[in-house]
Simulated assay, not measured.
Amino acid sequence: MGKIVTISLGGATGAAGFTSDAQASAFADTIWDTFLGGSSSTRPFGGAVLDGVDLDIEGGSTIYFDSFVNQLRTLASGANKQYYVTAAPQCPYPDAYLGTVLNEVGFDAVYVQFYNNYCQLTSFSNANDWDFSDWDNWAKTVAINKDVKIYIGAPASSSAAGSGYVDVNTLANIALTTRSQYSSFGGVMLWDASQAYANDRFDAAIKSAIIEGSGGSSSSIPVTVTTSTQSASSSAPSTTTLSTISSSTPSTTTLSTISTTTTSTLSAPTGAGNCAGVNAWVANVAYIGGDEVVYNGHLWTAKWWSYADIPGGVAGDWTDDGACVAAALRVGQFITPITRASLYR
């Protein structure tokens, strides 16, 4: 089937909204032409055609979003490939922002954020708080698409969310228990890829734990990893959601891997010392814990995920490892490949 890559709209600090059905439909046309199956002089990903849209609306208004989704469905109806529409609501049911639109149009998958709320993963043993049953009931009795799958959204590290993080074994047990109880269960979504990678490859660990919990067979729960992609030629990050969707049951899902990698064609500078061969810091590249850069003649190591935070700045994202013995890098020079995200399903 390959890997499904969708573009996510909204976010924790977004306040998106439409003022009319016509505006919503027009924006759907723009998304279709810019990222999906249409054509435009502006295609950020060139000839790559994404597989759909994810709605992560956590602010503003969702009035007219049904027109946005319906227009996307109309445009995709005559396409030679399938396109997907997904959503990422908060776990309190119904979701404060997406609740209405979830009931008005069909979704292929819903990635419920079981963190930063009373119904988070750490409340799994509390039947009064853990509410996957409410989402399962919605999927079976309210949702337009009765085949919609519900994913458990989980933080990939303790720093990925304000609360709700659980370790790999706990998350695997929750996922396996939930799968055994609810047929709408679709898999596990992690926020986000960079922090999963920095957290001892939390993504790989949860995949392994779930396989073992399934008896070691090739069938497993799909794991979705969400990431942000940045281009060195762009001025702002473009957020995408890497996700897996399957119309089959979880027991028939196989595991495979996708990675997004940034590479360059520049050669490493000559010179000895602790900075030889290390990249210069670049403002529009996301870094994860352990990444090394050169900035103002010093070697710096990232403490955790960061974006556009200057080494030595007030954010405190970088550790100063001292002055370089030799560094012939220009500002913005980019040398070694950096892998940014991995997706398992």
Rank of each mutant, 00 (worst) to 15 (best):
C119T: 15
T260A: 11
W281N: 03
L55R: 07
G162D: 01
N173G: 11
S20C: 03
F132H: 03
R43K: 07
L343T: 07
D167H: 04
D56E: 02
A96N: 13
A193V: 13
G14H: 08
Q71K: 09
A28T: 03
A328G: 13
C119N: 15
F45G: 01
S163Y: 14
S25T: 10
T249S: 13
C91N: 05
W304S: 01
A286H: 07
A28V: 12
K146N: 14
W300T: 08
T263S: 08
G277A: 05
N279S: 03
G10P: 04
I258P: 09
A328E: 14
F27K: 05
A16R: 14
A172D: 03
G213T: 07
V112Q: 07
P155R: 04
K81L: 00
S183D: 12
V282D: 10
S264Q: 01
T86Q: 03
T100W: 10
N137V: 10
P250A: 11
G290C: 00
T19D: 08
C91D: 12
F114H: 07
A272T: 15
S180F: 12
S246T: 15
G17A: 04
I210S: 04
T252I: 14
A204M: 11
G290E: 11
N116S: 12
P311Q: 02
Q120P: 06
T62V: 05
D29L: 00
F124Q: 02
R345S: 13
L36F: 12
G216F: 10
L9M: 04
R179W: 15
G215Q: 11
R201L: 02
S183M: 11
S61Q: 05
T239F: 15
D291M: 06
K149W: 02
G289I: 05
P94W: 13
I338G: 05
T224C: 03
A15R: 14
Q23K: 11
D54F: 00
